[in-house]
């Protein structure tokens, strides 16, 4: 294929920026769960401070995409790639925000003795993180099969979330003095469940990118 090498390079650059933001969000999520597990409030504070980087990358992607639309008059697959880029960046940036929220909960829990649901939280995180990695790889490979697989994984996160909410409810009845921690852990689970939903959104955008049609995976 000939022509528009410079534009093609710009599209590759957009992809690289998205992968960079996605990798950042994934790492932030990992750090936030590890900080929670180890009651490491110092590390949690560092996550809050580093979030600026995600915001900067998010803005950079949006500005870059706007510049490409304004100067390159993209159509068809090129236009879908840029629009998908903007939407993916929004979703990924939100996932990075959830990592920040989890870090805040970690700070609030402080050095309190953990009630026994961390394994479930970790499991939710592991699936969500795997979903995010798979979404980035699906985007790179324009692979709709991987995108559809993300839906199945989201179902697992949802099921774990429902189960964990019930477990936390039980703990609340057994240990009323642990209410503060239970609320924070409930929030952490909610953040992870929402993060997985945002990955599902990304998967839908990838299907739109490849097929040019909209699919709703959340129904």
């Amino acid at each position: 294929m000939v022509g528009r090498e410079k534009f093609q390079r710009a599209l590759n650059e957009l992809e690289n920026k998205l992968i960079e933001l996605g990798t950042f969000a994934d790492r932030a999520l990992k750090n936030s769960i590890e900080a929670l597990e180890m009651k490491d409030t110092g590390r949690a504070i560092a996550i809050l401070e580093k979030d600026r980087e995600a915001n900067r990358l998010h803005e950079e992607i949006n500005d870059f995409a706007i510049m490409l639309i304004a100067t390159q008059a993209p159509v068809a697959i090129d236009l879908r790639r840029i629009i998908t880029g903007i939407k993916m960046a929004d979703n990924i940036e939100r996932i990075a925000d959830f990592a920040v929220n989890i870090a805040r909960s970690t700070i609030r829990i402080g050095q309190e003795e953990h009630i026994g649901i961390l394994m479930q939280v970790k499991k939710m995180y592991e699936i969500t993180s795997e979903m995010l990695k798979m979404a980035l790889s699906a985007y790179h490979d324009e692979d709709t099969q991987k995108a559809k697989k993300i839906l199945e994984m989201d179902d697992k996160v949802d099921a774990l979330y429902d189960q964990t909410v019930w477990d936390l409810f039980e703990f609340r009845q057994q240990t009323p003095q642990g209410t503060m921690q239970i609320i924070q852990l409930l929030l952490v689970c909610r953040y992870l469940e929402r993060a997985a939903d945002h990955v599902t959104n990304i998967a839908e955008h990838i299907i739109f990118l490849v097929k040019g049609k909209r699919y709703s995976l959340n129904n």
Partner: peptide, 18 residues
Amino acid sequence: FSSPADKRTEDYITGRFG
């Protein structure tokens, strides 16, 4: 201009040839 059915159309309107 949003999702052409034929690859050749897509290549042309996106400026890949022509």
